[in-house]
Computed example of a mutant assay.
Amino acid sequence: MASGNFPEDVVREILLMLPVKSLLRCKSACKSWYTLITKPSFKSAHFNSNATLKRSHCILVKRVLPEHVPPTESVLSFFNDKINGDDHVPPTEIIIPHFNHFLQMVGPCNGIVCLTDHRDIFLCNPSIRDFKVLPAPSFNYPHGLFSRTLGVGFGFDTHSSEYKVIRIAELYEDDDGDYMFHSVNVEIYDLSTDSWREIYAIVPYVWYFPSSELLFNGHFHWWADDEDHGGESMLSFHISTEIFQQIRLPDVCAFPDGNERAFLVLNESIALLLFNPSQQTYLDLWLMTEYGIADSWTKQFTIGPLVQIEQPLLFWKHELLLEKFNGQLVSYNLKSQALKEFQMYGAQESLRAVAYSESLVSIKGGSDIN
């Protein structure tokens, strides 16, 4: 299929309008198209165009298949842009074998997501079925100390054009079954070198709840202690400068208080949801109206009561996606307050969801995004 009748810039603009699935077929059409589509500059322009125009936007859901006993097989499922469309149309699915019930999904970043069970970590671009298992960290910890993952983060350094995975690890001593906390270690994986390195940083203890880890505004965030104020904080890590910052949470947060926390994005701001799963679940929504400013936390409203809700997952337009106690995906309309059920189930507490824009970016040393 020749493209000689069209100027190269015209061909490029046409191809930029196509979805990833079509572009993968177009790579086989002719040598010139293959060369164009595989250029890093084209991949970057295609992703940025999709993100700007909100083409190819969808919801990416991770779940563990409930029919497997024990539940060990995870699935990534795409929902199209119209969440209120026909939910009987089966979504596109990708099987992720050999990972357990507690698989977390963080990101996405340029179409890549990081998946972890807090032991194994791998990167995935589900648009092009590209996977990479990360090597395990292999540091020489002081004799007698062991390492346990507290939190995992993922992001893109716009200054060095480098993808980074951040692991916050607890070092502890095990004296004949008697656990003794020692310190918190910070380790960073660089995709271009396929290796881990340690950085010196004094960070608080990080706690994990589903949906308590968030990539936003060039920073990654975890739920953490706030020893200075005797409460809780959002621990922020700047992907480029590798500097940590603690952002105090509202004073109503006083762990342990029976509530769970979720960090989501609403109206281009970080939202904090406080909820106590029960038969009648209320979700208090706080918004950080000025990024990084603790005093800007403002309570917006309370959602509920909702029945048998396990956890919130994602704000999508005027909907809040949630997981029910039985592992079913549901949505709550913030305007009509109507609850809608989807015919999608996972093992209990296994659902995660992110807003996703498809991408041609490959997982390799270096970067396709500038």
Rank of each mutant, 00 (worst) to 15 (best):
V186W: 00
I239C: 06
P277E: 12
V186S: 03
G258C: 01
S240F: 09
R248N: 11
K299R: 15
W223N: 11
F244Y: 14
F255P: 07
G258V: 01
S195D: 11
F315R: 02
Y189P: 11
I293C: 05
H318Y: 11
W223K: 11
I202C: 06
R197L: 07
E232K: 08
E260V: 07
R261S: 03
G218Y: 01
W223Y: 15
V203C: 07
D251G: 00
D226W: 01
G258K: 01
S269G: 09
E290N: 14
W316H: 13
R197Y: 08
A254R: 13
D228Y: 03
I243K: 13
S269L: 13
L249H: 03
A201N: 02
E242T: 03
L320W: 07
V203R: 04
S195G: 10
T281A: 10
P277R: 12
P312M: 05
L274Y: 08
P210E: 01
I293P: 02
N259H: 08
A224M: 12
S212K: 08
R197G: 07
S233L: 06
V252G: 04
W297Y: 10
I270Q: 14
L287P: 09
L272A: 12
L322I: 14
G304L: 11
W223A: 09
S195V: 00
N276R: 15
I188T: 05
G231P: 10
Q311D: 03
Y291M: 04
E290M: 10
L273S: 09
G231R: 05
F216G: 04
R248W: 02
P204V: 00
L215W: 03
K317R: 15
E310K: 13
T281C: 15
L274N: 08
A201R: 01
Q245K: 15
G304A: 10
L264M: 10
F255Q: 06
Y208H: 11
L264T: 08
L313I: 04
L235I: 04
S212Q: 09
S269I: 05
E290I: 13
E290R: 13
S192K: 02
S233I: 02
F263Y: 14
N326D: 15
S278D: 11
E198S: 12
Q246K: 13
T289P: 01
Q246I: 04
N217C: 03
S269E: 14
P305C: 07
Y205F: 12
F244D: 09
P210I: 00
L283K: 07
G304R: 10
R261Q: 09
L273P: 13
S211D: 09
P277W: 12
P277V: 13
E232F: 04
T193W: 02
V206F: 02
L320H: 06
N267K: 15
E213L: 02
L283Y: 11
S212F: 11
P256V: 00
L320N: 06
V186Y: 00
L235V: 04
Q246F: 01
R261V: 13
N326A: 04
L235F: 07
N259P: 00
I293N: 05
F325R: 12
I309N: 06
C253D: 05
Q280T: 13
K317I: 10
S278V: 04
G292C: 03
I293F: 01
Q279W: 12
W223S: 13
